[in-house]
Amino acid sequence: MKKILAVLLAVSMTAVFGACSSGGGATSSETSEPASSEAAPESSEAEAPESSEASSEESEAPADTGNMPTVEKIKEKGELVMLTNAAFPPFEYVDGSEITGVDVEIAQAIADELGVKLSVTNMDFDPIIDYIKTGKGDLGIAGITANEEREKAVDFSTSYITTTQYMILPTGVDGATFDPNGKIIGVQQGTTGDNYYASDPEVMQPKEVKRYKSAVDAAADMALGRVDCVIIDEMPAKAIVANNPDKMQAYDPGYDKESYSIAMMKGNDSLKQVVDSVLQKLADEGKIEEMIVKHTSNQ
């Protein structure tokens, strides 16, 4: 497999993470190249629905159950559709023309349990919840934290990964004394680093928050001196830094722990039962940890 190119100078940033064996990759996939920083969100599907930051009233509106991708409908279709943002290694990233990673292998295990093929759609992170809410995909698997706002729109599986937010800092900066207040912070749009840490004035008060399609793009801008630090989940932070150890470092500020879960349409109990069962089996057999080691070592 080809080695990952350095995350610098704004070359095709998704391709930066094309460095893993295909493992449990999808049988078919759709990919869309991430746009440059601060562009309007795009997706690999038709026009995106309203943002997941819509009002609570809209979020709590009942879903169209006639469009619900139940286990029976998925089996009839012969296909399980996973929505993801393939710029979040080691969980999802692009290797050549293939989307792969820990989450893709988990989705493949769920598809195998259902006896159907797996199709992976690569899109912007921010609208994934809205797509799942309206039945435009079966599963949203993209390192998604099941927070209160998202739980108004979709149901979530049991958690399968526990993580925390890290800072990516330029080399030479002392993380212990670095103060993000009054600084320019780079984040991946729609993530915890964006919605909570960088955007909540009670948590921090940055000079400016720059939002990107991926943490890769944000780190590239940091290397060029355009942002002071990047806030992103622990393992993606470490994967980015591993490819640029002379330019950047990963620092643990001691933020709260959070967990990843799989998003499904509200009320989709039959699919949730299968997903939770597969996650439990993978965890009991130590397979998820093996996937993390495999995809991290190939970065």
Score class of each variant (00 low, 15 high):
5 L>S: 14
6 A>F: 05
6 A>C: 11
15 A>I: 08
17 F>L: 12
22 S>L: 15
23 G>H: 07
24 G>N: 04
27 T>Y: 13
30 E>M: 12
32 S>P: 03
33 E>D: 09
34 P>T: 02
35 A>L: 02
36 S>P: 11
37 S>A: 13
39 A>T: 12
41 P>Y: 06
42 E>M: 12
43 S>L: 10
44 S>K: 07
45 E>I: 10
46 A>T: 09
46 A>C: 06
47 E>F: 13
48 A>F: 08
52 S>A: 15
52 S>I: 15
53 E>I: 01
55 S>E: 09
59 S>H: 07
60 E>M: 13
66 G>T: 13
67 N>S: 15
69 P>V: 09
69 P>T: 11
69 P>C: 11
73 K>E: 11
77 K>R: 15
79 E>F: 05
85 N>T: 13
89 P>Y: 03
91 F>N: 05
96 G>A: 09
97 S>R: 03
108 Q>F: 06
111 A>C: 05
111 A>S: 06
113 E>Y: 01
113 E>Q: 10
114 L>G: 00
115 G>L: 04
115 G>F: 04
116 V>P: 00
117 K>T: 12
118 L>Y: 01
119 S>M: 10
119 S>A: 14
123 M>P: 02
124 D>Y: 05
126 D>M: 11
129 I>M: 11
129 I>T: 13
130 D>M: 10
136 K>C: 00
137 G>L: 00
138 D>T: 02
139 L>M: 12
139 L>E: 00
142 A>P: 04
143 G>H: 08
144 I>P: 03
144 I>L: 13
144 I>C: 05
144 I>W: 04
146 A>S: 15
147 N>K: 10
147 N>F: 11
149 E>K: 13
151 E>C: 05
153 A>E: 10
154 V>C: 12
157 S>Q: 04
161 I>M: 12
163 T>P: 04
165 Q>H: 09
166 Y>R: 03
168 I>Y: 00
169 L>F: 03
172 G>T: 11
173 V>E: 05
174 D>S: 08
179 D>P: 04
179 D>A: 08
180 P>S: 07
180 P>Q: 06
182 G>K: 11
182 G>Y: 10
188 Q>K: 10
189 Q>C: 07
190 G>A: 07
195 N>K: 14
199 S>R: 06
199 S>A: 13
199 S>C: 06
200 D>C: 02
201 P>Q: 11
201 P>S: 14
202 E>F: 06
204 M>W: 08
207 K>R: 14
207 K>G: 08
208 E>C: 10
209 V>M: 05
210 K>R: 15
211 R>C: 03
215 A>D: 12
221 D>Y: 12
221 D>T: 10
222 M>P: 00
224 L>K: 12
226 R>L: 14
226 R>V: 09
229 C>G: 01
231 I>V: 14
231 I>W: 02
232 I>N: 01
242 A>T: 04
242 A>V: 01
243 N>W: 02
245 P>S: 07
246 D>C: 03
247 K>P: 03
252 D>W: 08
252 D>E: 11
257 K>S: 14
260 Y>N: 05
260 Y>I: 06
260 Y>P: 03
260 Y>T: 05
262 I>L: 07
263 A>T: 00
264 M>E: 05
266 K>S: 11
271 L>A: 08
271 L>F: 04
276 D>K: 08
277 S>W: 06
279 L>K: 04
281 K>P: 05
283 A>S: 12
285 E>F: 08
288 I>S: 07
289 E>W: 00
293 V>F: 08
295 H>S: 13
297 S>C: 09
297 S>I: 09
298 N>E: 14
